[in-house]
Design a protein around this nucleic acid. Sequence first.
DNA 1: CCTCGAACCGAACACTGTTAGTTTGTAACC
DNA 2: GGTTACAAACTAACAGTGTTCGGTTCGAGG
Lengths: 210, 210
Amino acid sequence: MARPRTPVLSTARIHAAALRIIDTDGLGGLSMRKLAAELGVQAASLYGHVSGKDDLVHEVVNTIMQGVDVSTFERGDWRAGLRSWARSYRSVLTEHPNVVPFVAAGPARRPASLRAADAVHGALTGAGWPPRYATMIGASIAYLVIGSAMGSFSRGFDDDVRTYTDRFPHLVDAPALRDHAEEIDAGSFELALDAFLTGLEPLYAKVARD
Amino acid sequence: MARPRTPVLSTARIHAAALRIIDTDGLGGLSMRKLAAELGVQAASLYGHVSGKDDLVHEVVNTIMQGVDVSTFERGDWRAGLRSWARSYRSVLTEHPNVVPFVAAGPARRPASLRAADAVHGALTGAGWPPRYATMIGASIAYLVIGSAMGSFSRGFDDDVRTYTDRFPHLVDAPALRDHAEEIDAGSFELALDAFLTGLEPLYAKVARD
DNA sequence: CCTCGAACCGAACACTGTTAGTTTGTAACC
DNA sequence: GGTTACAAACTAACAGTGTTCGGTTCGAGG
């Protein structure tokens, strides 16, 4: 079989299959051969539609990040805007947790992320925050979103109970932690977001100009 | 040459060489063959001293994380303890930025990280924070540390100026951002840490019991 | 002295991303 | 209808990855 009567591949189909594999097997579980097999095709055939694995992943992730909602900023309340953006950002990432490490590497080459960064920066400076603070506030919230979506803390604990109970008395309930990993990470995120926004108020009173 | 008169390899030498490669070429730049070459040896020889690449990296990173200082908690001030821990944590990571993605995956299998988590949790509960909040506060700070150490935000921007100036008016100075990436990430970290700790106070007044 | 185990090597296996060159089906043009 | 041109998929290969197996050689203990 050299050329099928009707084309088998399309960038859309490739993207969809790639995301499926990433979601189930992780970023490391995505290989061009496996992806090709999923599509009933040889690996080399993919290169007619996609320039390479790196670009493919970038494009897939960009599509995901288009789901991040920054529209609340338009209502003029930067506090509500930040909250809404952060939650939307986090919710998009928790739907595809395996791409979080990739997202964490930075927004470059992802128009969707740059667009969001632009909106955040614009809204904050528009509200009187100096540009420098606008940047840092956006960065801070990105830290919280990415960290909690990655499950750095709670999901990272080991299965083996004895690992902890031996030497780390305060972590005896770490396995319980692990069972409720999602809940703990979500809770930590909300707590951090709340505390951060609360703590921003005195700074706003000091540095904001209008 | 089958067996040298005096042993060439040792776990210590292997760890040191591995860290050197990771620091200069990144985590992805570390391969068993390159590591072996750096030590003047064949790749297979490493497996007599190290059980595999995964374990090797875990051990190397654990050694790094032993540099995180949690001693300030012993002074009894949880605010100062958190500040000091967070800064020490971050400073250790910025010395070896290439291991941050690995650290972000979680503390399991790294005794040094578990020890730190245990100390944080113990200090906070000792200060009257309910265990649940102690966990979440520790997690929140870990998010901030890892996010800022990764340079997710500022370092992630592209070199190419035109990428931004075209469509994202508020990001016109993103390249300048990139030049001062370290400074921006450090500033964001301090700002977030400050605001977070400030915002924690009302919560502490409400939920802490002694 | 002799054995035994530790230390290292060479070759191989099953993967990876990617490229070159080839075959073949389809559509457009004369 | 025949020819040309293109596009889609193929096979085969390259250089690289982590890891394992079977061997060889040396140092130390009995």
